[in-house]
Amino acid sequence: MSADTSARWLLLVHQLPAKPAYARVKIWRRLQALGAATVKGAVYALPANADTREDFAWLAKEIGEAGGEAMICEAVVVAGMSDGDVQGLFDSARDEDYARIAAEAREISARLKQDAPDSELAELASQTVRLRRQLEGVVAIDFFGANGRLAAQGLVSGLEAVLQGGDAMKSPQTTPAPGLLAHRAWVTRRGVQVDRIASAWLIRRFIDKGARFKFVPSSGYQPEPGELRFDMFEGEFTHEGDRCTFEVLVAHAGLVDPALTAIGEIVHDIDLKDDKYGHAETAGVRSLIAGIAAPGVDDDQRLARGAVLLDGLYESLALKREA
């Protein structure tokens, strides 16, 4: 079998004169708006496709008009970096964007809970509209589905529901009734981390003992009939308001169990990084999950190892509450 030699990355290598300074700032802002990742110095990368080729071509033209020089290269690999390393550059940048949006959304939510007067509600609604636009802008350049995306989307959607007089904690109408969740194919994003690992454990142990799991790209996947998506954009089970997917699944399945509630709170704090609950076990679980989800460990292995961890955590928490 021949190796795949199709270009995976576009690299823009450029140089600009020191003056005028505003030209350098303008090009930097354009690179940020495109979602380009800094590989080294004045070398920037984008995933290779027709749209990004056009984006870099226009930017190279602007650089030339500003008195600089630019060269666009197509690369199968980036020297000294794996594809995962390059993707990590994009994901890290987008996670920073999502964290900023999530923090602003939580601030607005806190003000809404303080029974703000009508005059302030109008301002909070305006800020929420602005946040939605910012979120859509970040999603547009989130090429690989960064982990912070669902939390930010859930928080902004929750704000919109509250401001519109809706219920931010209501499951979508398309979500199946708890009794219809047996022997289903459950679909989630590749590269599972804490919320997806814990949700898969919850599904198989407490919701659907015959569950089958399928791992797909973070965007562009069209579900097959009968599949249920979790912790995915537009999934049947995903972040709602300030709740992570695990918490949403527990509530939807009607699982009244203090140990599961505690695990949900631990997963929440690790996944959303907001330290809302502060359980003593959180730091240890965070470290163990980091090892379970280390690079090179495939998704089935991550679920298997995570299940061992979560079985032990569940038994420990259950015993603690019985004591």
Rank of each mutant, 00 (worst) to 15 (best):
E160K: 08
E160L: 10
A161S: 12
V162D: 06
V162I: 14
L163H: 10
L163E: 06
Q164Y: 09
Q164K: 15
Q164F: 03
G165Y: 04
G165E: 05
G166W: 03
G166H: 03
D167W: 06
D167I: 02
D167M: 07
D167R: 14
D167Q: 13
A168P: 01
A168W: 04
A168C: 00
A168H: 07
A168R: 04
A168D: 02
M169G: 05
M169D: 11
K170I: 09
K170W: 05
S171K: 07
S171T: 08
P172V: 11
P172M: 13
Q173H: 14
Q173N: 14
Q173W: 13
Q173Y: 12
Q173C: 13
T175P: 01
T175K: 03
A177V: 08
A177T: 10
A177I: 06
A177F: 10
A177E: 15
P178V: 07
P178A: 05
G179K: 09
G179C: 10
L180K: 13
L180E: 15
L180S: 13
L180I: 00
L181C: 00
A182L: 15
H183A: 15
H183S: 15
R184H: 02
R184T: 00
A185L: 14
A185W: 09
A185S: 12
A185G: 06
A185M: 13
W186I: 02
W186S: 02
V187E: 03
V187T: 03
V187G: 02
T188L: 09
T188I: 04
R189Q: 05
R189W: 01
R190T: 11
R190N: 12
R190F: 03
G191E: 02
G191H: 03
V192Q: 08
V192N: 00
V192P: 04
Q193I: 03
V194E: 08
V194W: 03
V194R: 09
D195M: 07
D195L: 01
